[in-house]
Design a protein around this nucleic acid. Sequence first.
DNA 1: GTAAAAAACTAATAAGTGTTAGTTTTGGAA
DNA 2: TTCCAAAACTAACACTTATTAGTTTTTTAC
Lengths: 197, 197
Amino acid sequence: MAKIIPGKSGSKKDVITLKASTLFRKKGFSATSMRDIAESIGVEAPSLYNHIQSKNEILKDICFRIARLFMGYLEEVESGTQSNLSKTESIIRFHISLMTEEYESVYIADHEWKHLPEPFLSDFKNQRRNYRSRLAAILQKGIDDKEISKVNSHVAVLTILSAISGMESWQRSGKKIDAKLLEEDMIKILIEGLRNK
Amino acid sequence: MAKIIPGKSGSKKDVITLKASTLFRKKGFSATSMRDIAESIGVEAPSLYNHIQSKNEILKDICFRIARLFMGYLEEVESGTQSNLSKTESIIRFHISLMTEEYESVYIADHEWKHLPEPFLSDFKNQRRNYRSRLAAILQKGIDDKEISKVNSHVAVLTILSAISGMESWQRSGKKIDAKLLEEDMIKILIEGLRNK
DNA sequence: GTAAAAAACTAATAAGTGTTAGTTTTGGAA
DNA sequence: TTCCAAAACTAACACTTATTAGTTTTTTAC
């Protein structure tokens, strides 16, 4: 009866992914059923299978799209010529902006990836590890140049990424704080915390 | 056949809660079945109901115990006479130490509370909000005293709590970094990021 | 050693899971 | 109008879910 109408979002698969993202973020991947997703679109559950292969595929698509975005930007920054502290700031800003623009997907890639089936789980974890150690390498260079204060670079990466990832709890909570202010204050705390004095 | 043997942990209910915590953290609350919990103890699922009321009760116990610990420490600090930056540091240190000592439970209280059934969900969210705004109040006083740099206090709270909450991903990853080093470096970044210059 | 209480067991329930099969409806092109 | 493919539908599958009922085993207390 009802029909999946692709909006500006693109294909019907995209509509499903979008609606599923909202639910995965709100209730978690495991607690979200295919019937939940179908209902939020206004369709019966089996109809979804005309457009997707499985529930897992939706999760996989979300996680790897986000991973690709982050990895792409990291590569851009790596080949740049700015100082390492400034490279770090660029990456933090990218994380924050992606978090504000696509926080449902970013949240899922951050918190629900553990439900990926193999071999995607291993692949994702590798990409994650790779990303973090390359970010740590940038920080380490900054530390060696005495531009960044002497801390364990992996701890610094952890601190940065976690701080940003927690933005989602603000995103949900009704935007009492202006997005730009949030970004600037968070940058201030993190960058001043890292800067060598 | 097998029997639930209460170790040093206390009652049999405590054993169940402990084993459940490990699974809830590893697989998530929804993806963990009562059979999973039972198996990890070496017992059949229905036997668990001699000691607990429901799966939800386990989650409730975990979340509220952690909430009580944090709230208790906050009250202690609030009534202290140290500077506000130093109060903040105490609280950060408490968070970090609880995270290293009881990271499974802390992780669950941090990430799985959304699966609490009403009215516990509302109660928990209220406590959470209350805790955060009281922590923000401490920071605000520090800002007014020009001891802490001028940032939005709620953003600062968010940054601090999220940074610490991310420690769990290190906890899991095989402790390559020494716990004390992690604590000191994280404190360094956060406190130097907050200190007024 | 025996009685009572605690805690395990098996069997079963009703509801929910992702997904498939087979069928009907829909929308666009000829 | 007719035809065809896309995409919806209903019915059903095999399985898993939390939990209950009823029973047997184990532990505790005397």
